[in-house]
């Protein structure tokens, strides 16, 4: 499938036949999916399923062996600057430098993303994520929850068309995680961008995502509405479906229909 740039209501992310292998080891096998404007898509899968490989390819820090990725119509590899100007991300494994203060980090990344007017945007984000008290605090001494909020503030600096969130609530207590989820849902609603979200928390995924993709062994096994996908495939819950697929990637048949 060759992607086109001309569609009027084009998706913010188009992943077409993307494949990545390291020697004979296949990390991602010809996956295709899209994220529409205003849509929150969950990317689920057991460890090693290819989620982070996929996200790294979307972020342009890993080149696909073949296939094409368009962000807001721009090819990540050929139009890198344009594509990545429309993107941002937050991930637990990519904290902001701990030896700089919250405001210094936001200023540096704001300059890199070409945000204007920068000071106003920084002040707004500090307020939005309840970080005003930590403006001059070094990121390295903040708690996990505070660091996550700083990463999210950085991820929203450029009001991205595509926001990638790799387990954004993994290190948060339930109350903070719920606050963050509500904020992200509001951002998707108000800014109209698309969000690709990875998580191992199925309750969170059902609560937040409009659609989920379940990956295993580098392939998209299933996709659909997280609130109905489990019942469509004869599982008691999304978590049960996830566990079943993690143990046996071939077990996608709807059990209820089989038993009827």
């Amino acid at each position: 499938m060759k992607l086109t740039h001309a569609a009027t209501a084009r998706p913010v992310l188009q992943v077409a036949n993307v494949h990545k292998h390291y020697g004979s080891k296949i990390a991602v096998a010809d996956i295709s999916f899209e994220v529409a404007a205003g849509e929150i898509v969950g990317l689920l899968g057991p460890n090693g399923a290819g989620k982070t490989t996929t996200i790294n390819m979307v972020l342009g820090v890993l080149e696909a062996s073949r296939g094409q990725i368009l962000i807001d119509g721009h090819d990540v590899m050929r139009q890198r600057r344009r594509a990545l100007s429309a993107t941002n991300f937050a991930a637990v494994y990519a904290p902001l430098p701990g030896n700089l203060t919250v405001e210094q980090n936001l200023r540096i990344f704001g300059l890199i993303y070409g945000v204007r007017p920068l000071q106003m945007r920084i002040d707004g984000l500090l307020q939005q994520f309840d970080l005003l008290a930590y403006r001059d605090t070094r990121c390295g001494v903040l708690s996990s929850g505070e660091q996550t909020r700083v990463c999210l503030a950085k991820a929203l600096l450029n009001q991205p068309r595509l926001l990638l969130l790799d387990e954004p609530t993994a290190s948060l207590d339930p109350a903070t995680a719920r606050d963050i989820r509500l904020q992200i849902q509001r951002i998707a609603r108000e800014q109209g961008g698309g969000i690709l979200w990875t998580s191992h928390n199925m309750t969170e995924v059902e609560d937040v995502c409009d659609r989920v993709l379940i990956l295993s062994q580098g392939r998209v096994l299933l996709q659909g509405d997280p609130r109905t996908l489990a019942s469509e495939h004869g599982a008691a819950s999304l978590e049960d479906l996830f566990v079943r697929l993690a143990r046996d990637p071939g077990a996608t048949a709807p059990k209820r229909e089989a038993g009827a």
Partner: peptide, 18 residues
């Protein structure tokens, strides 16, 4: 090396920075 020590490459190079 400051970027190596602070594990900052992903933040920097997943951005429009050339």
């Amino acid at each position: 090396l400051e970027d190596v020590w602070s594990r900052n490459f992903l933040n920097l190079f997943a951005s429009p920075l050339s």
